[in-house]
């Protein structure tokens, strides 16, 4: 066999391995899905049953009617959407300020923001609770949303991306008499959709229900998603 043919067979083999690897990644999810259609005893049956004997579709209405599923679903969606919106807005604002303006202590602010990435949330659970209580946010949606509405990772991502946008874009708008917040809404935001998309996906991920829509969005926008991370370049 010629060297070239050997290489192409090798390539095909690697592709096959890549596809086979998907099995390892998705197996737990597949098992969860198949178990969701099994009877209780089938789940632990031996030898293992990868597919239910007879799909128990009634499991779904049963689960949905147990507890106030509708309320939980609504709560999760609302909180996830609000946290995402907060992150998109505040992280892009801060990212723009840090990337394109000079002001005293800018670098210090940026470093201080990054240092919060080192902080496990549990460490500051009690003082955070006191802040939340001080703001009157206990026992309402605000208590779940506000503490998570800004994240240093998002600011970092947006800053790196906006840094690469040409300054001339901003200066031209300024010369044309556009106000500073006008520049942000009309020039900056429309030009950083890939980074905003990546940030939206990453902040929305803790909402269980978001999974399927997220998969669809990812399929269509993965180029933009990966580019969003690429361009926000982990280069300093």
């Amino acid at each position: 066999m010629s060297r070239k043919a050997l290489m192409s067979w090798g390539g095909r083999l690697v592709t096959l391995l890549t596809i086979a690897g998907i099995g390892l990644t998705l197996l737990p999810y597949f098992w969860m899905l198949s178990s969701s259609l099994k009877t209780g005893s089938e789940v632990f049956e031996l030898p293992i049953r990868w597919l239910p004997r007879e799909p128990q579709w009634s499991n779904y209405p049963d689960a949905l009617s147990r507890g106030a599923f509708g309320v939980y679903f609504f709560n999760s969606t609302l909180v996830a959407l609000a946290v995402m919106a907060g992150n998109l807005l505040f992280c892009s604002l801060a990212g723009y300020g840090l990337a394109k303006f000079r002001f005293p202590y800018r670098e210090l602010s940026f470093r201080a923001i990054l240092s919060t990435l080192m902080l496990p949330l549990e460490i500051v659970l009690v003082p955070t609770f006191l802040v939340v209580r001080g703001l009157g946010l206990v026992n309402n949606y605000g208590g779940l949303i506000v503490p998570l509405a800004v994240d240093a990772f998002g600011i970092f991502l947006m800053r790196q991306y906006i840094k690469d946008l040409p300054d001339s874009l901003i200066e031209a708008a300024r010369l044309d008499g556009c106000s500073e917040h006008g520049i942000f809404w009309r020039i900056i935001l429309p030009n950083c959709t890939p980074a905003l998309g990546a940030l939206a996906l990453l902040t929305f991920r803790d909402a269980v229900i978001a999974m399927i829509p997220t998969a669809i969005i990812f399929l269509f926008f993965q180029r933009a998603f990966v580019r969003g991370i690429a361009l926000s370049g982990l280069k300093e």
Partner: peptide
């Protein structure tokens, strides 16, 4: 532009710390 995020981090990260 940076202020809202900074205030948030002060309230929910630096102050608790």
């Amino acid at each position: 532009f940076v202020l809202p995020a900074l205030l948030h981090l002060i309230a929910f990260k630096f102050y608790p710390m």
